[in-house]
Write a protein that binds this DNA or RNA. Structure first.
Lengths: 235, 235
DNA sequence: AGTGTCCTTTAGGGTAGCCTAAATGTCAAC
DNA sequence: GTTGACATTTAGGCTACCCTAAAGGACACT
């Protein structure tokens, strides 16, 4: 059987991500994979056929792709690598939150099983990465993203940020400048009418933020200790 | 101009290493490169011609290869990456000394400039890796390997290990079990005649070691603080 | 100079992964 | 049920890197 190359890992990871957009485990269109990998559609078709030959995906022409159990296992391994590296880079090297993703993108392919073990242990066998995304366990179990979207928070209720979406690097960068990162204490002070901006206290500062952007931030009213990943640097 | 791929980096690094075996900057035979990269000779010829086209080496048929200034710069960058990662893996993750090399082999190709900066800083801008090999500076300056070969040490003189060759993984592994790693305190107690084994005290233990093997270990009589890289775990 | 040995190079192929252009399928709207 | 818009696949090619087999150069020994 053909080898699991970096490219194969990238494909499996993207397929995994895209099949989790809605609530259910969906078939992923070839075109979406192409877009997300910044690769042409024909390239995806070719690779996907190869992946099927390796037993990593199910694929029917003109009908999208689905991971097999074996494919999902590899995908989750890569996601685990990625998120462990992210946490490491952020907490130990002080890499800013909005840059850990790109760096981890390359490191995720370069982590032997032994190293994974050591890395995880050095981090205290963490359950969530610095964005608040759950880190799959070695056996492939995946926790949930905690908290609720910030715009849904009750007014004047102290809460802690549990998750910031890393999907859009530019938006993330801005949220970081506002201090809206996992572990930060927030209070929703005011909701302007007609979908207008939210006024939020973040730590000791106060800011106004569009609800659409705020929706990328999740918060929880639970005690801070049990909720966010430990952080050492804000940026 | 063609891109500096992983393979290109590997070639440059090996050429750099092989050109430093003797005291002078030598031309490196194609065959040696092939052996060290575990690749066929024709593959090396092809690649070396390509490298010349990129201005990274000088190359004349049947007469070996030499790095250009540009090539040496890249090679030293890779060596710097490699040794920074080695130190990091060893001191921060507890990767055993005899395994840091293989892991760093893959990580060295995956380190952006920003990350290199942060990694180096997190390590206290170190000058030597856990084997005692010097880490090139960002500008390409390379320190020396410190100390003298253990067999040359005066009898009964306390010394500190400054360097252990990582060229042979199996021998290194054995030296590690003896405790002959940078930072260890040693005393040469006895030299058997006719090239027989040396008796050495390593820390509180005592061992007999073949001089040829002992030659892979370098020691210095200087004070320990100024000499070995800091270590946290022996294996 | 001739010859054998040991490198090294040339010749010809293979795989992985990407591309563009052209052909083909799908689906909704008429 | 045809048509047009759009997604997808097929066809053909490119680059990077590796291989084996066979040809060619270097060098020492006679």
């Amino acid at each position: 059987m053909a080898a699991v190359t970096h490219a194969v890992e990238d494909y499996l990871k993207v397929i995994w991500k895209l099949s989790h957009r809605g609530r259910e485990d969906e078939r992923v269109p070839v075109g979406d994979i192409a877009t997300h990998l910044r690769v042409s559609a024909p390239s995806v078709t070719g690779m996907v056929q190869k992946l099927q030959g390796m037993g990593l995906v199910q694929y029917a022409r003109y009908d999208g792709v689905r991971l097999s159990a074996k494919g999902r296992k590899i995908a989750l391994e890569i996601v685990r690598h990625h998120r462990l590296w992210e946490l490491y880079l952020h907490t130990r090297l002080g890499v800013p939150l909005d840059r850990v993703d790109v760096e981890a993108e390359r490191l995720e392919h370069v982590l032997s099983d032994d190293m994974e073990e050591l890395l995880s242990r050095a981090l205290g066998d963490p359950t969530h990465d610095p964005h608040g995304d759950p880190i799959p366990t070695k056996s492939g179990a995946l926790g949930a993203v905690r908290g609720e979207p910030l715009p849904g928070l009750s007014l004047a209720t102290p809460a802690v940020v549990t998750h910031v979406s890393d999907r859009h690097a530019d938006k993330l960068r801005y949220l970081v400048t506002l201090g809206l990162v996992p572990g930060a204490r927030v209070v929703l002070l005011q909701r302007a009418p007609f979908g207008g901006p939210l006024t939020v206290r973040v730590g000791r500062k106060r800011c106004a933020i569009d609800p659409e952007l705020a929706a990328l931030v999740r918060v929880s009213e639970e005690s801070p200790a049990a909720t966010g990943p430990k952080r050492r640097r804000a940026r």
